[in-house]
Computed example of a mutant assay.
Amino acid sequence: MRVMLRAHMDTAATNESIKTGALPQVVQQLMDRVKPEAAYFGLHEGVRSCWMVFDLQDSSQMPSLMEDLFLQFNAEVEVAPVMTAEDLAKGLAAMRSSGQS
Score class of each variant (00 low, 15 high):
F70K: 09
L92V: 14
E67M: 15
V3P: 00
M66I: 15
L88E: 06
N74D: 08
A39V: 10
E37N: 02
A89C: 01
K90A: 15
M62S: 08
Q72E: 14
A39M: 04
N74Y: 09
A85N: 05
L92K: 08
M95G: 08
Q25S: 04
L69E: 03
K19C: 02
Q100H: 11
R6N: 10
A39H: 11
D68W: 04
Q57E: 15
F70G: 03
L43H: 11
L30Q: 05
S64T: 10
G21P: 00
A22T: 11
E76F: 13
V53S: 04
P24I: 10
P36F: 09
T20R: 02
V27Q: 04
A94P: 02
F41N: 02
R48N: 07
I18N: 09
T11S: 12
S101H: 12
S97A: 13
S98C: 01
L30H: 08
L69H: 07
Q57V: 12
E37L: 12
T84F: 07
A13Y: 04
G42T: 06
I18D: 11
R6Y: 12
L56E: 05
V47K: 15
E78D: 11
M4W: 05
R33W: 05
S49D: 02
D87I: 13
M9N: 03
P63F: 11
M31Q: 14
M31Y: 11
E76H: 12
G99C: 04
A80Q: 14
P24Q: 10
W51V: 14
A94V: 01
M9P: 00
G42F: 06
G99R: 08
E16N: 09
D55H: 15
Q61L: 07
P24R: 11
H44T: 10
T11L: 08
P63N: 08
S49I: 03
D58F: 03
D58I: 00
T11K: 13
L5M: 15
Q25D: 07
L69F: 15
T14A: 09
L65S: 07
L43I: 04
E37I: 13
M4K: 15
T14F: 08
L23A: 10
Q29D: 15
L71G: 03
Y40R: 10
V82A: 03
V82C: 01
L43Q: 13
